[in-house]
Amino acid sequence: MKWYEFFLDGNFLALLGAALAVIVAGLGSARGVAMVGQAAAGVVTEDPERFGQTLLLQALPGTQGIYGLLTAFVILTKIGLVGGSPVELDTVQGLLFLGASLPVAIVGYFSAIGQAKTAVSGVGIVAKRPGELAKAITFAAMVETYAVLALLGSILMIFGIRV
């Protein structure tokens, strides 16, 4: 097998898709959670009792990374790398998996950061009006919708691929 043929291997492409879902969405979540964490730490310096509330906000942009892992896992199950016997995929099938992983990877990355920005502002709400946590969470959850939709898109696509 020549080296470039390796890149046309179906199993490699499917794994690349799974890896992208974990990496890209995970990077977004990591950045997002860090952003909210920094803002939250500022508030907690002033008022340690805000810890629980701000932690809740910090957790919100973390879900995209989980969605990425979830998608990867569904791909791995589908191609038999987890629980079952590995299937041989042709190039087209591999590309289908790669394509199906893109929604959760790309939308996951940007929605995590968008959600983090909203949550950072939400930390500001909690700092001044602790009673309004639910509203801060709701604003951030609005952004999450698109990550959920992307996850749904990816999973439905993966379920639909015939192997």
């Binding site: 896992f73 629980g83 959920v148």
Partner: peptide, 22 residues
Amino acid sequence: LSYSRLLALGLATGVIASVINA
């Protein structure tokens, strides 16, 4: 269509649980 999140989050629990079990 917004209610599709019911499915997405419902699947998420099951899939994460099977990752843990694996």
